[in-house]
Amino acid sequence: MATLSKLKELMSIPGAVAAGEFADDGRLIAYYGNIDEKSAEVAAMMCAANKLMFNMQAKGWSAYTGQGGFYPVYGFAVAGGKYAACIMGNVGVFVELDKADFDKTFEVLSKYL
Rank of each mutant, 00 (worst) to 15 (best):
98 D>E: 13
68 G>V: 09
37 E>T: 08
33 G>M: 14
29 I>W: 06
86 C>S: 14
16 A>K: 01
38 K>A: 15
89 G>A: 14
40 A>H: 06
38 K>P: 00
77 A>T: 06
94 F>V: 15
84 A>P: 02
76 F>A: 05
78 V>W: 04
97 L>Y: 00
87 I>H: 00
90 N>L: 04
90 N>W: 04
79 A>E: 15
57 Q>I: 15
100 A>H: 00
17 V>Y: 04
13 I>W: 01
6 K>A: 12
80 G>W: 09
85 A>H: 10
103 D>Y: 11
76 F>C: 12
45 M>S: 13
101 D>P: 03
86 C>N: 13
105 T>R: 04
52 L>C: 11
34 N>T: 10
104 K>T: 11
82 K>L: 09
48 A>K: 10
67 Q>S: 15
89 G>L: 13
17 V>P: 02
49 A>S: 12
58 A>G: 07
69 G>K: 09
108 V>C: 06
31 Y>D: 05
58 A>C: 05
110 S>C: 05
26 G>T: 06
15 G>I: 03
70 F>E: 02
105 T>G: 03
9 E>N: 09
97 L>G: 05
51 K>P: 02
31 Y>C: 04
64 Y>V: 08
97 L>P: 02
60 G>K: 04
111 K>D: 07
62 S>R: 02
69 G>I: 07
97 L>M: 11
52 L>F: 04
43 A>Y: 08
70 F>A: 14
14 P>T: 04
14 P>I: 07
64 Y>I: 01
7 L>M: 05
96 E>R: 15
61 W>N: 10
60 G>I: 04
100 A>V: 08
68 G>K: 14
87 I>Y: 04
23 A>V: 06
84 A>S: 15
95 V>N: 00
80 G>H: 07
12 S>M: 10
69 G>F: 11
47 C>S: 14
47 C>M: 13
47 C>Q: 03
91 V>L: 11
62 S>I: 01
11 M>N: 09
50 N>K: 06
32 Y>C: 05
